[in-house]
């Protein structure tokens, strides 16, 4: 996707975010209000200026054509999907099971590791995680199955 357009969308998103924060801030009591109000107003005005500025630049560029930078979207989205999938697995089946499933799938499909070495890695990680959690008194995310 064109980087300039993406930037435009992102600034638009920030503008909406600041404006919503502004509206929300109006509902706070007087003492809790001033700070978020100041910054959300400043934020939405500045993003608005930035947005206009960007539109102007893009408009000018249109006339000249060319030199647009493409940003690949599909790949990052795929990897973000992996991360979200991992979290979902943790939510459903607990850290240990999720880690094992995620790791083995990822290592085989994405890292193109052999099954054997992937298996060894998974075992090492599981042992390391459980050692770490007992040695450092670490908490694990809770999950639906209660594992």
């Amino acid at each position: 996707m064109n980087k300039d357009y993406l930037n435009l969308i992102f600034s638009g998103f920030l503008f909406i975010l600041f404006t919503l924060a502004w509206i929300e801030a109006l509902t706070f009591s007087k003492l809790g209000q001033f700070f978020p109000l100041y910054i959300s107003i400043a934020g939405s005005i500045l993003t608005f200026i930035y947005l206009l500025n960007q539109l102007l630049i893009i408009y000018k560029q249109k006339k000249r054509e060319g030199n647009e930078i493409k940003i690949p979207l599909w790949q990052p989205l795929k990897y973000i999907g992996w991360i979200l999938g991992y979290l979902l697995l943790i939510y459903i089946g607990g850290l240990m099971a999720a880690t094992a499933i995620f790791l083995i799938l990822f290592l085989i499909f994405e890292s193109k590791m052999k099954f054997v070495s992937a298996g060894i890695s998974v075992i090492c990680v599981l042992i390391a995680v459980s050692l770490l959690s007992s040695a450092l008194d670490i908490y694990w995310p809770t999950n639906l199955l209660g594992l």
Binding site: L95, L107, V129, Y139, W140
Partner: peptide
Amino acid sequence: EKIVPFLLILLVVGAYQ
């Protein structure tokens, strides 16, 4: 791609702390 999955696990456990 070989190091990221391990890092991710570490980060998730770390963030949860």
